[in-house]
């Protein structure tokens, strides 16, 4: 396995990192309408369910035995994703955020996320396959603070000098969802 994809130049890495930092700043700044401008209209935005399957005895000794993938109930599985959304549902969430009666965010949540481990795993034409991790702190008056951790598996497409998000799969690391909502923009 190549450790480095020759298509991943320092310039490309830098511009994609800058894209993610800007995205994080928009989301923590509650600029969801601006953020929607980073989203491709054909987006697939999903969050797999995550269970505790049985270990397969025949896989013992192999990394496959305890792989993360076998815990996920994603779009291609017969299981139940937590979120399976397109542009319209994301728009609905954005619209909701700016209504007076979005009570779960009244007053709005204070979020601060650190996005890191940005790894461009593949480049095909104008599409960029990018993994990134996030830690997110979430606070709202009246409820305990929450902490979110997960991985994003994105496909970005070039859009002039910038990028748009064509696909995002969010793998959450919590065992039970002991948080007010998993409906955030992650």
């Amino acid at each position: 396995m190549n450790n480095y994809n020759s298509a991943v130049t320092p310039e490309l890495q830098l511009s994609i990192e800058q894209f993610y930092y800007r995205e994080a700043r928009l989301l923590d700044g509650r600029q969801y309408q601006t953020w929607l401008g980073l989203v491709d209209p054909a987006i697939s935005y999903s969050m797999p369910g995550r269970g505790n399957p049985m270990v397969n005895n025949r896989e013992h000794g192999n990394e496959a035995m305890i792989s993360v993938e076998r815990e996920l109930e994603g779009l291609d599985s017969d299981g139940l994703p937590i979120r399976d959304e397109g542009f319209l549902v994301l728009s609905l969430r954005v619209e909701r955020s700016f209504k007076m009666n979005a009570w779960a965010e009244t007053p709005p949540a204070r979020t601060r996320r650190i996005v890191g481990n940005i790894e461009i795993t593949d480049v095909t034409g104008e599409q960029f396959f990018v993994l990134s991790n996030f830690h997110l702190f979430y606070a709202r008056p009246g409820v305990p603070d929450s902490f979110y951790a997960g991985q994003r598996r994105d496909v970005l497409v070039r859009d002039g000098d910038h990028y748009k998000i064509l696909k995002r799969e969010i793998v959450m690391d919590m065992a039970n969802a002991n948080v007010p909502t998993l409906g955030l923009f992650l």
Binding site: L80, P81, I82, R83, L182
Partner: peptide, 10 residues
């Protein structure tokens, strides 16, 4: 179900 209800529901 999941689009509107459950932990990720709108």
């Amino acid at each position: 179900h999941a689009s509107f209800f459950g932990p990720g529901g709108i």
